[in-house]
Computed example of a mutant assay.
Amino acid sequence: MKKLSENEISEKLKDLEGWSYSGNGIQTSFEFENFKEAFTLMTRIAFEAESQQHHPNWSNVYNQLEITLSTHDAGGVTEKDFELARAIEDIVNSD
Protein backbone atom coordinates (compact mmCIF):
# COMPACT_ATOMS: atom_id res chain seq x y z
CA MET A 1 0.00 0.00 0.00
CA LYS A 2 1.34 3.43 -1.01
CA LYS A 3 2.18 5.99 1.65
CA LEU A 4 0.14 9.17 1.13
CA SER A 5 1.73 12.60 0.84
CA GLU A 6 0.98 15.31 3.40
CA ASN A 7 -1.20 17.08 0.80
CA GLU A 8 -3.20 13.90 0.13
CA ILE A 9 -3.63 13.37 3.86
CA SER A 10 -4.79 16.96 4.38
CA GLU A 11 -7.37 16.60 1.60
CA LYS A 12 -8.74 13.34 2.99
CA LEU A 13 -8.91 14.75 6.53
CA LYS A 14 -11.42 17.35 5.33
CA ASP A 15 -14.00 14.55 5.30
CA LEU A 16 -13.16 13.34 8.82
CA GLU A 17 -14.21 15.82 11.48
CA GLY A 18 -12.13 15.62 14.64
CA TRP A 19 -9.20 13.79 13.02
CA SER A 20 -5.76 15.36 12.55
CA TYR A 21 -2.37 14.41 11.17
CA SER A 22 0.53 14.28 13.58
CA GLY A 23 3.85 12.53 13.41
CA ASN A 24 3.35 9.49 11.25
CA GLY A 25 -0.37 8.92 11.72
CA ILE A 26 -3.88 10.28 11.78
CA GLN A 27 -5.44 10.62 15.19
CA THR A 28 -8.59 11.44 17.07
CA SER A 29 -10.09 11.14 20.52
CA PHE A 30 -13.54 10.42 21.87
CA GLU A 31 -15.19 11.03 25.22
CA PHE A 32 -18.01 8.77 26.34
CA GLU A 33 -20.49 8.77 29.21
CA ASN A 34 -18.49 6.22 31.21
CA PHE A 35 -15.96 3.40 31.00
CA LYS A 36 -18.55 0.81 29.99
CA GLU A 37 -19.61 2.85 26.96
CA ALA A 38 -15.98 3.48 25.96
CA PHE A 39 -15.11 -0.18 26.28
CA THR A 40 -18.21 -1.27 24.36
CA LEU A 41 -17.23 0.96 21.43
CA MET A 42 -13.64 -0.26 21.62
CA THR A 43 -14.89 -3.83 21.32
CA ARG A 44 -16.97 -2.98 18.26
CA ILE A 45 -13.99 -1.15 16.72
CA ALA A 46 -11.76 -4.14 17.49
CA PHE A 47 -14.03 -6.47 15.48
CA GLU A 48 -13.95 -4.05 12.53
CA ALA A 49 -10.17 -3.63 12.78
CA GLU A 50 -9.74 -7.39 12.78
CA SER A 51 -11.97 -7.77 9.72
CA GLN A 52 -9.85 -5.16 7.91
CA GLN A 53 -6.62 -6.72 9.20
CA HIS A 54 -5.55 -3.24 10.31
CA HIS A 55 -5.17 -2.45 13.97
CA PRO A 56 -5.16 0.92 15.73
CA ASN A 57 -2.71 2.22 18.25
CA TRP A 58 -5.05 3.31 21.01
CA SER A 59 -5.36 4.05 24.67
CA ASN A 60 -8.28 4.20 27.04
CA VAL A 61 -8.55 5.90 30.42
CA TYR A 62 -11.97 5.73 32.03
CA ASN A 63 -14.28 7.40 29.45
CA GLN A 64 -11.55 8.69 27.11
CA LEU A 65 -10.40 6.88 23.98
CA GLU A 66 -7.45 8.07 21.89
CA ILE A 67 -6.76 6.48 18.51
CA THR A 68 -3.84 6.79 16.11
CA LEU A 69 -3.81 5.05 12.74
CA SER A 70 -0.70 4.42 10.65
CA THR A 71 0.36 1.70 8.24
CA HIS A 72 3.65 0.48 9.66
CA ASP A 73 4.63 -1.50 6.54
CA ALA A 74 4.37 1.69 4.46
CA GLY A 75 6.03 3.91 7.07
CA GLY A 76 3.13 6.34 7.34
CA VAL A 77 -0.49 6.98 6.45
CA THR A 78 -2.16 5.07 3.62
CA GLU A 79 -5.67 4.68 2.25
CA LYS A 80 -6.01 1.72 4.63
CA ASP A 81 -5.89 4.14 7.58
CA PHE A 82 -8.64 6.27 6.11
CA GLU A 83 -10.81 3.20 5.48
CA LEU A 84 -10.54 2.23 9.14
CA ALA A 85 -11.04 5.84 10.31
CA ARG A 86 -14.29 6.06 8.32
CA ALA A 87 -15.44 2.73 9.76
CA ILE A 88 -14.62 3.95 13.28
CA GLU A 89 -16.66 7.11 12.68
CA ASP A 90 -19.58 5.00 11.46
CA ILE A 91 -19.40 2.82 14.58
CA VAL A 92 -19.18 5.74 17.00
CA ASN A 93 -21.92 7.72 15.26
CA SER A 94 -24.31 4.76 14.99
CA ASP A 95 -25.19 4.93 18.69
Score class of each variant (00 low, 15 high):
N63E: 12
D90L: 12
W58V: 03
E17A: 14
S29P: 07
F82D: 03
L16A: 06
S70Y: 02
V92S: 03
E66T: 14
H55S: 00
G23H: 11
N93T: 15
M1H: 11
E79S: 08
H55T: 03
E11P: 06
N57Y: 07
E8Y: 05
S22V: 11
Q52R: 13
E31Q: 14
S70F: 01
R86E: 09
D73T: 00
S94Y: 11
N57S: 14
G23V: 07
I91N: 04
K12S: 05
D95Y: 13
N63Q: 10
E79H: 08
Y21S: 09
Y62E: 09
M42I: 15
A49V: 00
Q53A: 14
D15S: 15
A38E: 05
V92A: 03
H54E: 03
E31L: 10
Y21D: 07
A87H: 08
M1Q: 11
L69R: 08
S70H: 08
T78Q: 03
T78S: 01
G18S: 07
I67W: 00
F82W: 03
L65Q: 02
D15W: 09
H72A: 12
Q27E: 15
R44K: 15
E37K: 08
Q53V: 00
P56C: 04
R44L: 15
F47C: 10
E89P: 02
K36Q: 14
A74H: 01
R44Q: 07
N63K: 09
F35V: 04
A49C: 06
L65M: 05
V92Q: 02
L84S: 02
H54W: 04
G75R: 05
F30D: 03
S94G: 05
K3Y: 04
E66K: 15
S20V: 14
F32L: 03
I45H: 03
F32E: 00
I45E: 04
Q53E: 14
W58P: 01
N63P: 02
A49P: 01
D73Q: 11
I26A: 04
E50I: 04
K2Y: 13
L13T: 11
S51G: 12
